[in-house]
Nucleic acid binder design. Structure first.
Lengths: 302, 302
DNA sequence: AGCGCAGCATCGTAAAATCCTATTCAAGGT
DNA sequence: ACCTTGAATAGGATTTTACGATGCTGCGCT
C-alpha cells in the first residue's frame, strides 16, 4: 500500500522549484498553510525530512531530501505523461481501434473502410479480426474488440447496433441452370432443387427462415461455413444457394461459371451493422469510426 | 494539476489483476463498494471506461482500458520503487552522506573516519568538503551537507553539537629556539616573542583568547589561514605559534625542524565536535555516522 | 422453469483528509 | 525598535474515503 499521494509529491516538488512554500503557494494557487501541512505530512509518512526551514527565507532541500525530490520529479512527470496520453485517447482521434468483422462481410467492406478511415486519421492504427457471430459477440463482450461489423440478426439486448446498409439476398445458380433464364427467381421455383447452405451462425437461420417464410422446406444437400466453398459447390452444379454477400465476378475459385438472380418474392434484407456494447462509453475514436462507417455505407443505400 | 490519485490507479490495477472487483477487494482488504466507487470515479475523471462489467462474472478491461492499465502499472511500480528507496534511506544504513570538515581537522581525522565507516557499511558513499567554520555552517544550513566536523567554538544556537574529543593546544617553536629547553612552556615566557597566527575563524579568536586570558597581548608578526604555512613561518624562526592540530613529524614542508611543547598554564582545550542542524530529523545513516565518530574519538580521550 | 449464487452498484453514514481564512511566531533588514 | 518576510498553528467548512447493509441482474444448478 502506497503511503503517499501524488498530490503531496506534486506540492513538494513545486516547493523545491520555487524555493519556498509561499512562492509555491502563489504559483499553484493554493493557500500557503495547505502546502505547509501537506509537506509536513509527507515528511512524516515517508519518515524523511525533505526540507530545512529558514526563518523568513524559504526552505532548502536536505541532502537526503534532494535525492528523494529528484526521483519524485520523475514520478510526477510519469504521472503527467499518463494523464496526457489518456486525455488524448479520450478526446482526440488517434491510437488503436480493435475491429472485428463477420467473415463474409470482411473481404468486401473492411479494406475500403480501413483505407478511408486511416487516410482521414493517419494517427490511427486498426487491429483486425474475423469470425463467426458468436466469436464477434464474445470478443466484444470480453473487451478484445471495440466494435464488430456484422449482420443485424438475433442481436442480444446488451449490444448497441448501428445499421449501416441493407442488401437483398440473391439466388446463386450454376451458370447453365435452367432457372437462369428467369430474370427474377420466385422462391417456389426452388422447391425441389438441392440447397447448398452457407452454414455460419446467424446466416444459417437467416437463409432457412427466408425459404420457410415462403412455405418451402429446403432440401439441404450440402453445407459449408465457407462462402467460397459454397460457391464452388454451386459451380459444380450440386445445387443452388441463397446468399447476401456478392463478390465481384461470376466465377468460383475453380473457374466454373455462376449466375446471380434476384429473388422475385418480398424477403427480409440482410442488414449490415456496427455493434458495440451498450454499457461501453464510446471513445472519440470509436465514435469517429462509427460515423465513417455510416458515411461509407450511405453509397450502398438500396 | 493531476486529476487522479495513486490510490485510484492502484485499485484499478488490482482489479485488473484479479479479474473482478470482489476478488481485488478480498485481496486488498478493502470493502467491495469502496473499490467499485473508486473505479467509477477514476473512469469519470480520466474520461475513459476502463472495464466492461459482466454480471456475476467479474470485469474485463476494454481495449482502451487495457492500454491505460498497462501504463498505469508502470506508474504504480515507479511509485513503489520510490517508496522502497525512501524507506531504505530512512531506516537502513546506505546511500550518500555529505560530510564537511574544518580544514585543519580534515587531514588527520577524516581519512580514518571514512575508512572505518565505509568498511563497516559498504553500501555507503561519502561526499567530502573542507572549509572554514563559516562555510561549514552555511553549507549545513543550506542543506549542502548532512553534518560538519569542526571545533566547538562559538557555535550558533540552531546547531546540535556532539563533542567527540578535546585536545590541549601546544606551543610550536623553531627547532633551535631557546624555549625548547623547557619541558612545558608557561605563556608568560612568550610575552615578547613574535606570534605567528593561524588565521581562520574561529581558531583566530580561540588562540588570541588563550593568550589574553593569560594577560598577554600577542605580538602578531605574521598570520596565515594555512596550517602548513604557519608551521613553515615558525620553522624559519619568524616566531612561535599556538596550535591544536598536530601533524605527525616535527618538520615543516620545507624541512626545517620544529619543536612542540605543552603549555604549562591551564588553558581551554580545543573540542572537536560533530555538528548538525537541530531542526533536522536525523536519518539512520547520519545517526550511525555520529555513533561511529564518537567511537573513533574515544581512543583520543585525554 | 425456478432458485440460489456471484458479483457490481447504490444508499446512508461516520471518519479522515483537504483546504481555506485568520493568526501567531521568528529572523533579517531598515 | 520596527517592519517585512515567510513558516507554522488554530479553527472550521467541505470533500473524500471508507464502511456495512441492501438492491439488482445474469448465470448455473437442480
Amino acid at each position: 500500500m502506497l503511503r503517499y499521494t501524488l498530490r503531496q509529491v506534486e506540492y513538494a516538488v513545486a516547493i523545491w522549484d520555487h524555493g519556498s512554500v509561499a512562492a509555491a503557494s502563489a504559483h499553484l494557487g493554493v493557500a500557503q498553510p495547505t502546502l505547509s501541512a501537506s509537506l509536513a505530512k509527507l515528511e512524516a509518512q515517508i519518515g524523511l525530512q525533505l526540507f530545512i526551514r529558514h526563518h523568513a527565507q524559504g526552505v532548502s532541500p536536505s541532502p537526503a531530501g534532494l535525492r528523494f525530490l529528484a526521483e519524485a520529479r520523475n514520478l510526477i512527470t510519469h504521472a503527467q505523461d499518463l494523464q496526457r496520453d489518456t486525455a488524448a485517447a479520450g478526446t482526440t482521434i488517434e491510437g488503436q481501434l480493435a475491429l472485428a468483422s463477420f467473415a463474409t462481410i470482411a473481404p468486401s467492406f473492411v479494406p475500403p473502410l480501413i483505407k478511408g478511415f486511416t487516410s482521414l486519421h493517419p494517427q490511427v492504427t486498426i487491429r483486425m479480426a474475423e469470425g463467426t457471430q458468436d466469436e464477434l459477440l464474445k470478443g466484444v463482450r470480453s473487451g478484445d474488440f471495440d466494435v464488430a461489423l456484422l449482420y443485424d440478426v438475433d442481436m442480444p439486448e446488451d449490444f448497441a447496433v448501428t445499421p449501416l446498409a441493407s442488401f437483398a439476398p440473391h439466388v446463386l445458380l450454376p451458370g447453365r441452370h435452367r432457372l437462369t433464364r428467369l430474370k427474377n427467381v420466385p422462391l417456389v421455383a426452388l422447391k425441389d432443387e438441392p440447397f447448398v447452405l452457407l452454414d455460419i451462425a446467424p446466416s444459417r437461420t437467416y437463409f432457412t427462415r427466408i425459404l420457410e417464410t415462403a412455405g418451402i422446406t429446403p432440401n439441404v444437400a450440402f453445407s459449408s461455413p465457407s462462402l467460397e466453398v459454397v460457391r464452388g459447390l454451386v459451380g459444380q452444379g450440386l445445387g443452388y444457394s441463397i446468399l447476401v454477400t456478392r463478390p465481384f465476378g461470376d466465377h468460383s475459385y475453380a473457374g466454373e461459371e455462376l449466375a446471380v438472380r434476384p429473388i422475385a418474392d418480398e424477403v427480409a434484407r440482410g442488414v449490415i451493422a456496427l455493434a458495440a456494447l451498450k454499457q461501453m462509453r464510446k471513445t472519440r475514436l470509436v465514435s469517429a469510426f462509427e460515423a465513417h462507417c455510416v458515411d461509407y455505407f450511405r453509397a450502398f443505400a438500396s
